[in-house]
Amino acid sequence: MSKEWPLWEIFIRGQHGLSHRHVGSLHAPDAEMALRNARDVYTRRNEGMSIWVVESNKITAFDPDMAEQNFAAPKSKVYRHPSFFEIPDEVGAM
C-alpha cells in the first residue's frame, strides 16, 4: 500500500473577535491542501472565517500521567481569584 497522507489538526475562528478553536482533523499531502480541505470539510455550514492547520505530529503535549504534578500547584493559590476578597456592598463596584 502506498503512503498515507499525514494528519492535520484544524483550528477555526468562528466569528470576528473570537480565538481559533480546535474543530477536528483531516488528511492532506501538505499544509496548503490541508487548508483547502479544511474549508470544504469544516465550514460547509458557514462556521468559519479563518482557518489554521497544524500537522498533528508537530504538536507537543504534556504526558497526561503527569497531570497531577503539572497542574496541582495553582489549586492552593485561591487568592488569585477575585472572589477570595470580601468587599463591603457600600464600597460599590470594583
Partner: peptide, 12 residues
Amino acid sequence: RDGLTAHAEKRR
C-alpha cells in the same frame, strides 16, 4: 492520492 503525495514531496 499518490500523485498528490509525489507533488507535495517535490515541493518540500
